[in-house]
Design a protein around this nucleic acid. Structure first.
Lengths: 235, 235
DNA sequence: CGAGAAATTAACCCGTTGGATAAATACTGT
DNA sequence: ACAGTATTTATCCAACGGGTTAATTTCTCG
């Protein structure tokens, strides 16, 4: 009822239409996966006639790929906006972890889309020259930061930047993308405020302790106030 | 052609039939997700008439839930078979990481099923009293091992066992479940032998370094031979 | 052996869904 | 103003896909 659409007279708006279609498609594909997504729902959500999808983007698969490319484009763009090279190495890594965590937290559709694409064994991504050319600036950033950290003595060990990049992503990604099943298994909500704060502290503590070798102060809840045994985390 | 099925005369085999159905369903759901799975394909793969699915298990959703419960049942069972409590703490953690890694590696359908279920926000799992009652023995195991490690001085810090459990799972899970897209992004096969060996070494090194504070020897490639700078990993 | 129950097959049903065709309407440049 | 093109709407449809109905075969046990 609130839908109120009176296409008695309509206007042209190709760019806007395309954007609305892609946004609606992102929602639909991330909520239902590729096979579960419904072309008609995308059209409805975009306030468009179904034909418009094919006219402006293409068939279901092409639409999906366009959404996926858009998602990678967005994260790469935000990654480039981050300047961590001038920070001291431990702080740079901490910021990197926080950025990753927050990005995933604020962009759950990105997680869903990646899950969906991996379920499809990256079948679509492989066809995208666009995405293949979008390299994350983080790998090189990590490489130089680790090198600096080792030189300065902050870090004990030179770790492969690709491995570290994957590990940092993994710690956030898995927690968030699997929060639904994990919450059921553990019988507690992993997404409430307290749990999320603890998770971020744990991840930062784990990675920084591994790199610096000085665990104790790092494993505390970030900026932990209160009277809490200095070493023991929420057991 | 090789399908050769002659149901001219057939035999009864309810238990066998049920097993074949569940196995075929596991394959289908993990390969295509819930929405992408085809009931007819499951029947065909099971060498059964479609009607049999409904007769022995139930509709598509019930079939899916049965598969999911079976998957959890299997991993819990293998987890219970592991006895790590008597090992010294660092070795226990290392073994735990190796078990997790190998289990995921050998049971890719489990990863896919979890991904699918999380895409559905654990909608089905929530309805399963069976799964909810299947607690992993690892959380308590980690709790006692960490306690022992702290007491013995092996570990620098008492970490929340749930967080550690999730982190260990995360490091393996993400790498494997997202290997398809990551391989495209990095332009190299993350699943070849060398890459997998390096990943396991990295994960063990990361977690044990964080816990013990002694990174150097732990970050080497496991049992690394050859002439390789002792500290630098595959940069 | 034979009747009733259990297991399996064969065939059909019907709403859904991705995609296509054709007609209508809104712009744009001349 | 108007011809031509770009954009949008209105309908249609054939294949698909989950689920069902009914008949058929096999087994069990008295």
């Amino acid at each position: 009822m609130a839908k109120a659409k009176r296409p008695l007279k309509w206007q042209r708006d190709p760019e806007g239409m395309r954007l609305r279609i892609l946004e609606a498609a992102k929602q639909e594909f991330s909520a239902h996966g590729l096979a579960g997504a419904r072309v008609d729902r995308i059209a409805a959500k975009a306030g468009a006639n179904k034909r418009m999808l094919y006219y402006h983007v293409g068939n279901k698969d092409e639409l999906y790929l366009a959404v996926l490319e858009g998602a990678y484009d967005k994260i790469r763009s935000e990654e480039r906006g981050l300047d961590l090279e001038h920070l001291d190495p431990p702080e740079a890594i901490r910021r990197l972890i926080e950025f990753t965590w927050n990005y995933f937290l604020c962009n759950p559709e990105f997680l869903s889309l990646l899950q969906t694409e991996n379920l499809a064994r990256a079948k679509h991504l492989k066809k995208s020259t666009k995405v293949k050319s979008m390299h994350s600036p983080f790998v090189e950033m990590i490489r130089t930061v680790v090198r600096r950290g080792v030189d300065s003595g902050d870090f004990q060990v030179a770790v492969d930047p690709v491995q570290l990049y994957i590990s940092i992503a993994a710690l956030s990604f898995f927690y968030l993308s699997n929060s639904a099943t994990l919450s059921v298994i553990f019988g507690r909500d992993l997404l409430d405020k307290k749990a999320k704060d603890e998770r971020l502290a744990h991840m930062s503590g784990l990675v920084l302790a591994a790199l610096t070798g000085r665990s104790v102060e790092l494993f505390e809840i970030a900026k932990a106030p209160k009277s809490r045994s200095a070493v023991v985390q929420t057991v």
